[in-house]
Amino acid sequence: MVKKTPEINASSTADIAFLLLAFFLATTTMNVDSGLYRRLPPYQPDNTEAPKYAKRNILQVLVNRNNQLAINGELADVSTLKDRTIEFILNPNNNEELPQKEVKTIELFGPVEVSKGIVSLQSDKGTSYEMYIAVQDQLTAAYSEMRNMKANEKWGKNFDQLTTEQQDAVKAVIPMAISEAEPKNIGGK
């Protein structure tokens, strides 16, 4: 006669599983990478000449190695950069000093005025990365605010609630034009 083996007590599996669970709970970092997305311009050999733009179409943003910000040659605080950029790009009063506008036909919008303004960002090699990100952040904020404005005018919704086609149309009306000049090396390193 074969003796029946007694059933193994399974009541502790719960405890074991809880232990494992606790381990994974403790070690999990569900951090999602986030940041400011940019697209670099393709590489150009040194001898190619930079295209020329009219002075009124350029907003010159300079950050020096002491982390000071200058907009069109005047010292300014980072927090003012967003409003300055919006005013510059939109040029609401058609000021002679601010960028020209070009009428373009864009899908879903029809003929609209598109600003020719370009933000030219120049940083020094000694500029701290934190300051650089703060500036980039302000510029991104300016563009996203303008895009939200256009989206609200047209569809009564914020930019991120639009469909992809609508977003593309808004992007065409407010193109993100941030140009980064070749770095200067004044501060060294």
Binding site: G35, L36, L40, P42, S128
Partner: peptide
């Protein structure tokens, strides 16, 4: 990039990435 780093090295990296034609970047923050 660490927040204390200066832009020199970041710009150099960006130049190298442009040369390598890998143009999508994300400034981690």
């Amino acid at each position: 990039v660490d927040r204390t780093v200066t832009m020199g090295i970041v710009t150099d990296i960006k130049q190298e990435l442009r040369k390598a034609n890998s143009l999508r970047i994300n400034y981690g923050s």
